[in-house]
Structure formats: C-alpha cells, structure tokens
Amino acid sequence: MIDWKPLFTRRGVVGTLVVGTCMLVPIIATLIDEPYYMNLFARLMIWAIAAISLNLILGYGGLISFGHALYLGIGAYAVGICSYYDINNIFIQVPIALGVATIISFVFGGIALRTRGVYFIMITMALTQMIYYLSISIEEYGSDDGLIIYVRSEFGTNIINLDNPFHRYYLIFLVMVGCLYLTYRLIHSRFGYVIRGAKSNELRMEVIGHSTFRYRLVCFMIAGVMCTLAGVLSANVEKFVSPDVMHWTRSGELIFMVVLGGMASILGPLTGAMVFWLISEILARFTEHWHIIFGPFLILVVLLSPRGIDGMLGKRGSGSG
C-alpha cells in the first residue's frame, strides 16, 4: 500500500513541481523551440547530483567538506582520458571512474576524518588543491587548457545514444532520481541513523558501540563515488574537461546549493541547485557586476534562513525527508 499523503504537503507539492519540471523540460523546450533550456537543465541536474552527494556528508553527516568538486573532476577526467586513448565504451569508463574515486575517497577520507571542525574544512580543501595542481601540470592531458572530448561515451547500442540530446537528458534525469532514491534508502537505514546520530552526538554513538570513524568513512566514500557519476555525465554534456571543475570555488558553490536548498533534506540540493542557477542567470543578464548583489544575497540567506528553502516550507519531523 503506497502512502500518497506526503505528496500533498507543502514540501510534497514543491518536490513534485521540481522533479516534474525536470522531467518535462525537453518537451516544453522542443515545443517552444528553445533547445538552449534543455542543456541548461541537463547541467543543472548534474550540479544537483553533485549537491545530493555532498548533502550525504554535509547535511546528514555534519562534515563540512570543502573539496567535493574533486570528484566531479575525477569523473570528467576519467571519461576525458579514456576517450583520449580511444576507449569510448561507457562500461569501461564508468568502472574506471568509480574505481579511482573509491580509492581516492578511501585515502583522503582516512586522512581527513582524523580531524574535526575547521581542520576538516581545510584538509579537504588542501587535498583537492593537490589534485587540482596535479591536473594542471600534466601536459599530456591538456594541463590548464583542458581536454576536448571528441566522442561521447558509447553504450554500444542504438537504444541509448548520448549524442541524442533527449537520450542524454533522460539518462541524467534517471541517474538523478536514482541518487535521490539511494539517499532516501540510506538515510532510513541503520547506517543512516548512525551517521545522523554521530552528527548530533558522537560520544553517544561510540558508547552504544558504533565506530563513527568507519561509518563516516563509508559515507564519505559513497558521497565521493556518487559525485563521480555527476562528473562522468558532465564530461558527456560539455564534451570537455579542464582543471577548473575542481577549483575550490566550485566546491564552495556546491556547499551553497546544499545550504540554500536546506541541509539534510532529500530534495533540498535539487531545489538549491535550481534556485542557484536561476538567480545567477537572471543577475548575470541584469548586470556584469552581478556578484555585488549575489554576495549580500548569500549573506542574507545564511542570516535569515539557516535551514534554506526547505526550512521555509515549515517544520518537519526528524525522520522524514
């Protein structure tokens, strides 16, 4: 028996609207002959996937990772470097990307999770900076200029062809919905309770016999791997990858999307990403000096609505999403 009731709350209506918009964009864009919006939303959903993954460690785990864009880079570079060597099959590219992400997130998580608070912020940023400089220095893969990806990832069948904008769009949409579902399942599992419990009271979790370090490390790795998928998709939309995707300001933008949407809410990162893009698009058309409005806007959001858009939609029980 499916419980439809949550759909008719304010939060449910907004969520349905947001996901529904994403689903209908290609159809509307085709009807009004504005294909530009289709790619815009495809990008937006990729950012949303990255933000959803960050939300796992940031929102639910309470760990401020200031280097999450690293995994966007890993995913995108995995596709880029594979295609550089004429390996275009996505069933080879994705395992490589996820494998590298697993190893890196294991090592980096192991180092970073030994620290707390600002030390954690700084070390996650520093580790990403290291990879950022590494990518700049490898001339073979374009260094600062980046890599052009001439051929998109291939499924080896005509049923899914990423050169077709509709196929591409709905693949991204499906991955995003999958990530949302995975988050939902994770958060409501025993694993999720430990992660959230460790955020509010680490000592208590240790006392009842959970090694918070191990749980957090696994959470850190899941988030990294999920974000890597966003990177793989991004390479297929942009047909290009450069070190810029790993710059620390990108990680900052991801954090802002999560906070704007509302931390520790399942759909928050998606609404956050949407509103973020909308605002920067509108402001940028209004004036070239749009940051002078955007900066204070950021401050106001933080000061006035600490729980983001999700917080504006009313109170919520601790377990729901």
């Binding site: 900052g252 954090i255 906070v259 950021l298 933080v302």
Partner: peptide, 8 residues
C-alpha cells in the same frame, strides 16, 4: 555553525 560563517 562554521558552515554559515564560511558561506556568509
């Protein structure tokens, strides 16, 4: 929270 400070 530190996060709010970083963002603001």
């Amino acid at each position: 929270h530190h996060l709010d400070q970083v963002l603001a």
